[in-house]
């Protein structure tokens, strides 16, 4: 039972991070129907920003939790700025081009950002300090739930709840939903669609940065390549849940995290990815639009 709980919670924490990254894919797709392949790199840049901030503040002798909070906030801003810029440079000029063009541009941006970080930082793995202290009250649960897992889960829940409130109740949130449902009509009621698109990239990128810092602190090391794998997994989660659907991305992330965790625990860690992608294939066969995706009837 303890082993099961251990796998359950490690899957939950892994899945929460997938969900945080998957939200960026799904929100962008919902608004402009583009798979932003550079999104994984934005996550990686968030982790690097967190490392720089953490290194700086550790040298100054700040308490770890303060460092973690500041690292997350700075990474959110920094990644948000990257996301905004990537959209302006790589996607906006191609807004009316055939759909393949921005897709290729996204792949180019992804390769560019990876290599840029590799050259600017280092191709090797860098150690990332553990920013989540061991709390005393966690002692009885320690055998199956680590503090940093708990922290990841709680932080993800808070962030996702905030996102849901934002989308549901704010003016910008309504504008985002309206734009996703019908961009032309959003224009006609006076929504500045360019602002909405920029905002979508900024929010998605900030969420990925939260995931980046949390997982980096959990894993203890990062390099320029972590965004590729995490991005691929998160994209899988987004498709699993139904691309374009926000609750879908959250559910997809969790399902993927649990699948990986249980496959690793009960079968073999070598089969982690096999099961993850097997699940994707199965879901796409039986529910092509994803778990919560809408099967839209094409009007002819």
């Amino acid at each position: 039972m303890e082993y099961f709980l251990q796998l359950f919670f490690s899957g939950l924490s892994k899945g929460s991070v997938y969900a945080l990254i998957a939200l960026g894919y799904t929100m962008v797709y919902g608004i402009i129907e583009l798979i932003n392949f550079a999104h994984g790199e934005i996550y990686m840049i968030g982790a690097f920003t967190g490392l720089i901030v953490a290194g700086l503040l550790t040298a100054l002798g700040w308490p770890v939790l303060a460092i973690l909070a500041i690292a997350i906030v700075v990474a959110m801003f920094y990644s948000g700025a990257y996301g905004y810029t990537v959209e302006k440079i790589a996607y906006k000029p191609l807004r009316n081009a055939p759909r393949l063009a921005p897709l290729i541009s996204a792949i180019g941006m992804s390769i560019f950002l990876q290599n840029y970080v590799m050259l600017a930082q280092t191709p090797d793995f860098l150690p990332f300090p553990n920013l989540v202290p061991d709390f005393a009250f966690m002692q009885p649960f320690k055998s199956f739930l680590g503090t940093s897992d708990l922290f990841i889960i709680v932080a993800s829940i808070v962030v996702m709840a905030a996102l849901n409130l934002f989308i549901k109740f704010t003016r910008m949130g309504k504008a985002m939903r309206a734009t996703a449902q019908n961009r032309k009509m959003a224009l006609l009621v006076g929504v500045n669609v360019d602002h909405v698109i920029s905002m979508t990239f900024i929010i998605g990128s900030s969420l990925a940065a939260v995931g980046g810092v949390l997982i980096a602190s959990h894993m203890g090391q990062i390099n320029f390549y972590i965004g590729f794998i995490a991005g691929l997994k998160a994209f899988t989660a987004a498709v699993l849940g139904g691309i374009g659907s926000i609750p879908g991305a959250m559910l997809g992330g969790l399902v993927l995290g649990w699948t990986e965790s249980f496959a690793t625990g009960y079968v073999s860690s070598d089969y982690e990815d096999v099961f993850a992608f097997l699940l994707l294939v199965l879901i796409l066969i039986f529910r092509p639009a994803g778990l919560l995706g809408k099967q839209r009837a094409q009007k002819v």
Partner: peptide, 14 residues
Amino acid sequence: LIFPDLTVRENLDM
């Protein structure tokens, strides 16, 4: 071009 997944009230708000 009604926003299909917004309520009637939200459509009017838009």
